[in-house]
Each structure stands twice: as structure tokens, then as C-alpha cells.
């Protein structure tokens, strides 16, 4: 399954929005945190898990989804949220802890909820998988269209939730796709140190579902694999497990010194940055010319600038609103 030119441009644009957004967050995150780094300080306090480098996973999958489809993501959710169409201004405001944020500042960057596009995430490893399976079950029971996609990291595959939800989804033949973003590191522990098999797509066999491995952090290859899986799900043929070789160009979280990485790994990863690579390919295959690519870049930057400006200008919530919205 090959993307149309419009889909390729869409993927390029959303990879750029995601990256520019993360770059802005990274810059602002360090405001107020120098010279001494204290996570509690600055306009964006708390943990921050950037998705730089993992954009191919998000756009290659979400290119096949519309607002009605359900996505659950992880503690590293921004790229997926961008690709799913989450309101960028309100997501930025949420990350800043502002009243105009998606959740009025209650959630922050690890708890992004945008019901308008059926996006949610959980900061706990593998725990977005159950809700995705449940959303898929809901669609099946209601006879409503739509699929669910659960994003997870390669570190999540050794959690009980992974195995329980794969079994349940296959048992009930639910319209759900499990997408493992293998960025090779669970904080400081490598995949080789944590996982008994080199590739997790083989685990699909244990649950009688197809498993696909997508090497190379290639958005077009992700698009092809995800397209097949989502088509299967939409057609009532049940779940699929996809593992994508990707990488994070940032640390696990902001402030991570990344001393666990072998020498030279980061340089090699930057040399394979998927965003300039996609630009080159799209120009080569005639999907874009240089001017169009530049225009997409400029538009992406403008979109991010607008969102960040909105978040900066927004008011903090009244402190006592902390006591509201516990129940529906």
C-alpha cells in the first residue's frame, strides 16, 4: 500500500509540526532551569518525554485514521497527538499547565485527552492497551465504524497488560492495532538487555494474529504496514501487532544525560534523521519541489509558533479548580 502524493505531503507536514513542537518545548523547558536544573521550575515543569525521531510511527499509522478512530498513546505522546489531530493550541496550553489546556491543567504532558478526536494516553507503561481494546469492543458491540490503535514502546512488551490485551483482542477478533515503537531503550536499559526475542512482531504468533516488523524508521514503510493492519481491522478480520524500528533523538526525559548510550550512537542517529530523509525522497519522487517543501516547513513552524504563543499567553487555572472534575 503506497501513499498518495497528498498523503505523503500530509505525513511530511505532520512530522515537521511534531518536531518543531518538540524543539519549542525543549527550548522553553530549560527556561528557569538553569544554571541549576530543577524539574519543578520554569514555564513547563515536571517530567518531559520528547518524541524527536519517532515521528514516522505516528504519521505512518495516523494517515489511515480519521477523528472517529480511537488512539491511545504513552508517556511520550506528542507526535502521536499531532498526527491524530489533537488541538495543538490546547495541548500546548495543557503542557504549560494553563486553564485553556485540554484538561484545564489537570493532566499535563503525560495525560493528554482530546475527546473530539478520540485521543488519550497514560503515563503508565502498557496501560493504554486495555482502553484501546475496550474502544474496539465498543465499536463492535455498537456496530459503529472505527478502529482503535494502541501505541506502546518496546519496553511495554514485557508487561502483563501487553499479553492480556493481545489475547483478549485476538480472542474476540476486535478492530484494534497494536503499534510498538521500538526506540531501543527503556530509559537506560536496552532492548537486548530486557527482551528475550530480538523482534517483538514474533510475539503475535502466540495470540494467533499477524505480526509485522517495519525496519528503518521509514514513514512510507510504516504507512504500508499500518494500512494493511487497519484495513484488516476495519474489515472485521481482527487485530495486528506491528513493531516499528524507530529511535529517539532525545533522552528518555529532559535532563537525561544519556550516559548509557554507546559512543557515537547519537551522531549516527542524527545522520539518519527521518525528516530530512523524507524531504529528499519526496522531492526525488516528484511529490514535492523545493519551494513546496520550504512552504510546508514554514507553515509547520507557524502552526507551532501560534500554539506556543497561545499557551504562553493563557492564564493559569484558579488554584481551587484543582478540586473540580473528579466526577462526571
Amino acid at each position: 500500500m503506497a501513499p498518495t502524493i497528498a498523503q505523503k505531503r500530509w505525513m511530511y507536514r505532520h512530522m515537521l509540526i511534531s518536531r518543531r513542537f518538540e524543539e519549542a518545548i525543549e527550548r522553553i523547558y530549560f527556561e528557569g532551569k538553569t544554571p541549576a536544573f530543577n524539574m519543578a521550575n520554569g514555564p513547563i515543569p515536571g517530567e518531559m518525554h520528547l518524541s524527536n525521531g519517532q515521528e514516522p510511527c505516528a504519521v505512518g499509522v495516523c494517515a489511515h485514521l480519521d477523528a472517529g478512530d480511537v488512539v491511545t498513546s504513552t508517556h511520550r505522546p506528542h507526535h502521536v497527538a499531532v498526527a491524530k489531530g489533537v488541538d495543538l493550541k490546547r495541548m500546548a496550553a495543557e503542557i504549560f499547565g494553563k486553564a485553556a489546556g485540554l484538561s484545564g491543567g489537570r493532566g499535563g504532558h503525560m495525560h493528554i485527552f482530546d475527546p473530539a478526536v478520540n485521543f488519550s494516553c497514560s503515563g503508565i507503561i502498557a496501560q493504554g492497551m486495555g482502553p484501546a481494546v475496550g474502544a474496539a469492543l465498543s465499536r463492535k458491540l455498537q456496530g459503529k465504524p472505527g478502529v482503535a490503535v494502541a501505541f506502546l514502546g518496546e519496553g511495554a512488551v514485557n508487561q502483563g497488560a501487553f499479553h492480556e490485551t493481545l489475547n483478549l483482542a485476538a480472542l474476540w477478533q476486535l478492530p484494534v492495532v497494536f503499534v510498538v515503537e521500538d526506540n531501543a531503550w527503556g530509559i537506560s536499559v536496552s532492548k537486548r538487555q530486557s527482551t528475550a526475542v530480538p523482534r517483538n512482531d514474533v510475539r503475535a504468533a502466540a495470540y494467533g494474529m499477524p505480526g509485522t516488523y517495519v525496519p528503518g524508521n521509514d514513514p512510507l514503510a510504516v504507512f504500508a504496514a499500518a494500512g494493511e493492519a487497519i484495513e484488516r481491522a476495519r474489515g472485521g478480520a481482527g487485530p495486528t501487532l506491528i513493531e516499528i524500528e524507530t529511535y529517539r533523538l532525545a533522552g528518555h526525559f529532559m535532563g537525561d544525560a544519556e550516559g548509557y548510550r554507546p559512543a557515537g550512537e547519537k551522531d549516527a542517529l542524527f545522520a539518519r534523521d527521518p525528516i530530512p530523509a523524507l524531504r529528499r525522497r519526496l522531492i526525488e519522487d516528484g511529490s514535492l519541489d523545493e519551494a513546496e517543501a520550504d512552504a510546508i516547513e514554514a507553515a509547520a513552524q507557524a502552526t507551532v509558533d501560534e500554539a506556543i504563543a497561545f499557551a504562553r499567553a493563557a492564564d493559569y487555572p484558579a488554584p481551587e479548580t484543582a478540586l473540580e472534575r473528579v466526577f462526571a
Partner: peptide
Amino acid sequence: ISETAFIGAAVGAAADGM
């Protein structure tokens, strides 16, 4: 016998209108 899966699934189904 997968309480994590089916209770988690209930959360997702509830958010989806069930």
C-alpha cells in the same frame, strides 16, 4: 483470567459511549 485487560477495556468502552 485477565483482569488488567478486561477492566482496562471497560475504561475504554466507557469512554466510547458504552
